[in-house]
Amino acid sequence: MPNGITIQKHGGVSFPILTEPIDEVMVIERATSFTKRSIKKQSKLDALYKCIEMIDLTTLEGADTVGKVKQLCTKARFPVTSEFAEELARYKNFQPIPSVAAVCVYPSMVATAREALKGTKIRVASVATAFPAGQVPLKTRLKDVKDAVSAGADEIDMVINRGAFLAGDFQTVYDEIIQVKEVCGSAHLKVILETGELATFDNVRLASEIAMEAGGDFIKTSTGKVAPAATMPVTLVMLQAILDFYDRTGKIIGMKPAGGIRNAKQAVHYLCMVNEVMGSMWLTPELFRFGASSLLNDILKQIYKQFTGRYAYDKSFSLD
């Protein structure tokens, strides 16, 4: 990692990017420690409900259709069938299953999702900037963002220019985020670092700093199209960057691990991590999201088990 990175703001003022070296082995050790937490009973239920509220329910396939996105939006509004809800309602202390935080789709599907989610608090997020590679001219990427915003996206998930980053051209990475942010207007900006391509934790930390300095509202691990996607250690490094940035600037930035979080147990471990590193006040959809698709059903299964004592089968839940 180069020393003394400075970035020029628009208008020519330079400022240093403060970053920190990361020891890979110890980060993995600490992240692993959260997977040893044993979350039981009411605290498990609380955590599972909270997880649902923080999900960006996602479909990002070439095969996505209007029909598929509509179905996903229904699932986002009503994660469980009424039959399921009625069964669980018989149990003491059952609380209605909340809806997810957002639905995340390609720009071409934003209008469909917007329509399907009308009248709900569920937000529409869209991956813009020529997701997932971002390898088109900036002009085209900005147009992509503009289209998504005007189609009604509340949130834009952009990808950073990994090519520029790995070539050491941090100024370009910064400038592009600034420009995307401008185009976003009032839409929230999540900056995807694509940590799987950044290869080292030092890079993840540096990219996090650049993304936050450039005005990202959230930083996000991955597109889900590159392995490895979100991991606990990578998320830990980003959370610590967020905390340091908050200490330094008073600005509060959100975190979104995406890709690879498929079951409730994993999600609860993430919650433990946020809880212990940041404090439980950070466990809110304004500050933490899971980018996931199959996670929701696994959480529902676990909720079913918590109330009934029986393991649910897949048929209890709609596929999407």
């Binding site: 009973k41 605290s43 008073g250 439980s280 006040m281 304004e286 500050l287």
Partner: peptide, 24 residues
Amino acid sequence: MAQIKNTNNVKINSDFKFEYAPAP
């Protein structure tokens, strides 16, 4: 409801307390 003070005007009202139930 607790607020997290911040300078970028993010409204966070979260009273979620993640207490770990005893796991003996």
